[in-house]
Design a protein around this nucleic acid. Structure first.
Lengths: 190, 190, 190, 190
DNA sequence: GATGAATGAGGATTCATTCAT
DNA sequence: GATGAATGAATCCTCATTCAT
């Protein structure tokens, strides 16, 4: 196993264990063991357990951001754009259930320093903020306070993914995905 | 300080500390100390730290449920009913910021056994489920899967309270409360 | 074993082990075990291993200071006073070999924070400083810089006790004690 | 950097760090890093951390011995010889404050195996022992037990250098150096 | 019921040392 | 010889819980 493989193995294992047992209930020793490396190796790659959590959080957030941002078409049809992004985001969550569950659990948790959470949230939400502003300019979106609308986006996304993750039989059901988008869009539209 | 006073002091202190430091970062000793009782006394009232958390969670949930349920008017005008309930719920959150923050942090956290969370969630959501079904019957609400709509309600409520708690200057602003309700209602309506 | 007994047992055991194995080579677990208490108990009485060392150092210093200070006669005959104090100090060292050895090892060691060492040293040396100044006034002691003379006192005392501790067969030999005093006195006298 | 340069860099860095932080608080990794070599390289030159300490101790001791021994004139005037040696020794300490501080800290410390300390001490003290015996033969020095006098020499030297190192403003003051010698000589003389 | 000293298992972290490259 | 990632035993310390007073 190469250097980077070990670091990745540690991140992967930490994700699994943090989601299934919780951050504090997961010992660094158990992460290392299940990742197939020695205890000390974890601290060779991450200066502390908190640092491991931080890097895990930021890397997953980045992965999600990359999946989404690459899909912005900017064709000008805001509703079509929004629908496409919603689909992509929901699909990412369905395809990465562990990572989505991680977000559900830790987006509001004090296990991640508030500053890190804020920063990560801002990165995602600021990109959404621009889309919202644009939609308000064209008159397609409602003129509510920006941060209220951002929180609503985030909240609806978490709610929708919770539904899909809790009901795996719906994963192929486009009607339900469409329903989740309708609720989202109706909430936001003018 | 009487017997019940001590128990309540422990619950109050636990709420404050769990919210500000997190469940695992808060020692039972520090809760007892700040509540003004001895370490052992905590274990007279609660068989374990987990039991304390469980009772805290259920008591806050109950308090919220009482505040809401007492307000159901059942006049038949679903939108008016919904608007009233939304107001009451948002106001409760604004008046109990610590308890609302507690929900934000622990509703999805593994610090509370899944079974307890489920049960609490069902209590609230089932009552909402009935309202939704009723609205669907009258044709005022959209015919999406029930649990999707329940999750959406919950998610929108958390999003709205997050907005209000993060922006205390908006607490008296009825326009913003109205905006939050509009988003919620538009998402749900037929 | 009572509360204070346990604390004292920990101090006594720490003294023995720190002297025989060194501070860092002595684990807190081994101190607790040999003192007959649980690991956690050590940290109930001392907030950290460093704090234990600090209290041990200060308590032994205090014990020595008490043994000496109670013996200052102030009859006015400086040489006789000095001789008496020297005897008392040497005898204390011979009767408390472990504590004397502790001073030999840790008076200059970074295992004890410099500030603590300084403070302890000043307490002892300041009382000696007064005696020296008095002797200089009467013309019986040499007029060298005060701190040089203090260091010399301290150094000679450590040297003499090292000699006596390394040669237990000399403990009853008053001639040798007299010799050590002569060297000390001749160094200091005018 | 050549092979020997690296070894010397490691010894120099170890000296600095051992004195400023203490032996146990200094990790081999930090020594290697600050010396500009890789962690493993330290273990090419020294089989263990203890071995590094041992070589450091012996090399400094040797350096001091060389500085002193080269200066023995053997003109027969014992007091003049002693005064010259005292000057040389004090000057060496002033010119090598780090190394002198190292002696202050580690001459009595269990960080250096007793056997090594003894051996080093004997090397220096045995050479002094001969001078003392010689002085006793001519009647110029007191007839106290040899090891008591040796310990006294050592103790006075440490005391004097402590004074000079703690008061750098006295480094050029010959009067003070003379004072320190007087105390030393008066202690030893017949 | 209340107290708080005592417990000891458990956890994060360090670090001397090794060894494959 | 030099490197530095990897190792894992060892250490300090925490903390939920117990129980004698």
């Amino acid at each position: 196993m190469s250097r980077l493989d070990k670091k990745q193995a540690l991140l992967d294992t930490a994700l699994t264990l943090f989601v299934s047992q919780g951050f504090h209930a997961t010992s660094t020793a158990s992460i290392a063991k299940q990742a197939g490396v020695a205890t000390g190796t974890l601290f060779h790659h991450f200066s502390s357990k908190d640092e491991l959590m931080k890097q895990l959080f930021l890397s997953i957030k980045q992965e999600f951001a990359n999946a989404i941002k690459g899909q912005i078409s900017q064709k000008g049809d805001i509703k079509a754009d929004a629908q496409h992004l919603w689909q992509v985001a929901i699909n990412w969550a369905i395809e990465n259930p562990l990572k989505q569950e991680f977000f559900q659990q830790y987006s509001m948790s004090p296990s991640i320093p508030a500053a890190i959470r804020q920063q990560a949230m801002n990165d995602i939400l600021s990109f959404m903020g621009e889309l919202i502003l644009q939609g308000q300019k064209t008159g397609e979106l409602a003129h509510y306070p920006l941060s209220l609308m951002q929180e609503s986006c985030h909240g609806q996304f978490l709610a929708a993914t919770r539904y899909f993750l809790d009901h795996p039989e719906t994963w192929e059901n486009d009607e339900h995905k469409q329903a989740s988008f309708s609720m989202f869009w109706n909430a936001m539209k003018a």
